[in-house]
Design a protein around this nucleic acid. Structure first.
Lengths: 211, 211
DNA sequence: CGCCGAGTTGAACTGAATCAAGAAACGTGG
DNA sequence: CCACGTTTCTTGATTCAGTTCAACTCGGCG
């Protein structure tokens, strides 16, 4: 029940050297190298917020104007379909960017919610600032392109396994998200896999019996 | 039964001003404006080929080294699963880029086939040339970023509707691909939607009866 | 202690797959 | 232009994976 915004803080306004920004800087450095003047430009565009469990970063009907970077914690992006069922299309954990690209690029109201699964620290950067930075720092565009490429591969993989039986979907999920599986409740895993929690429960118990 | 390559022609080696290249130039111009020297650099990196129906642009096991741009015609990208069933994850028609990003970025063998649905003219550009051009023409990176953003939105939409019942999937398909539906055989539509051709046939006849 | 959300398990139900057989549509060669 | 085989599409009967509904267990947390 929080539409976000009022408790965002400009990163550059926080007194101490922020450990948060360093995490993003490390992530950028894995793709392109920026000098300190450039990093400062990036930092000036960032805002930070800590979400409590079940806080929303985005709600249905809002226009999404930001890209979000997860410093610590976890998020889920989901749609509520006409029958009230939640369809999770994406998770966001440490070092992942998350946003509703559909709304961001089209500037139309989102159909998604983005909600914290646990206490979560995020950075955000606005569409406008990102466009401005891309002009000033062309290499930054390469960074965001690489990030987008990575998520594209994940999307593509997901499209493939959504067309396979429930057990195989769960196996692929474990391969891709195994390390964070225990941080996601089973009903959220099920909603991500497009199956009911009952089915997932049965699959898990079968797998245990067989090994 | 063709692994591609031997009949690709460097675009710059073709005598006349190529109508093909113009189509790509138009597409680029919709996103960024390049001067004629830059366009010439792009052209120099392009190769062209005409595929006959059922020719392959990529086969399972090959490493994908190119991005392909469809000038005319249509392609399907699909996986053959262990039971021999084909899962189509993407179509490519006029003015679309298509490739196996997974293989391209990881340089590992592809699990996909990319096959012509009809006689199809394509351009290709190699990974290396693309990287080179991105350095020489930073704005080109924006173009490819925009293209990737567009396809990300399509994939995200597809992930959403793969979790809904067959009839809704077909409706969304008509919304997105309505204009080219008649160029795709019903079994390929079904393989794209993750349903059998029998089910699709029944859905279509039901929809007709109801309207 | 009792409540509440999360997970489990069982039984009945259902949407879609499978299997099977025809009916169209399509291309090719005479 | 028709006859042919081949492929694509349709329709029906049966089966099955996964949903739904319902009851019950478990583990926190106020």
């Amino acid at each position: 029940m929080d539409n976000g915004g009022y408790d965002w803080k400009r990163l550059s306004a926080i007194e101490m050297t922020t450990a948060m920004n360093e995490l993003l800087q490390d992530h950028i450095a894995q793709h392109v190298s920026l000098d300190s003047a450039e990093l400062q430009l990036v930092e000036a565009a960032l805002e930070q917020r800590t979400l409590k469990k079940n806080d929303y970063l985005l709600s249905e009907g809002q226009v999404c104007n930001y890209e979000y970077f997860v410093i610590k914690g976890g998020l889920r992006q989901y749609e509520v379909d006409p029958n009230g069922r939640e369809i999770i299309i994406h998770f966001g954990f440490e070092n992942w960017w998350i946003t509703d690209k559909q709304s961001l690029y089209s500037q139309r109201p989102s159909i998604y919610y983005i909600e914290a699964l646990e206490e979560t620290d995020v950075l955000r950067i606005s569409r406008e600032d990102l466009a401005g930075l891309s002009v000033k720092i062309p290499r930054l565009e390469r960074y965001f392109h690489n990030v987008l490429q990575q998520s594209s591969v994940i999307w593509q993989t997901k499209i493939l396994y959504l067309q396979k039986p429930a057990e195989q979907r769960y196996r692929m999920f474990r391969e891709m998200y195994g390390s964070i599986e225990q941080r996601i409740s089973q009903q959220h895993v099920a909603a991500y896999l497009g199956i009911t929690r009952e089915t997932l429960s049965r699959i898990k118990s079968q797998l245990l019996k067989r090994q």
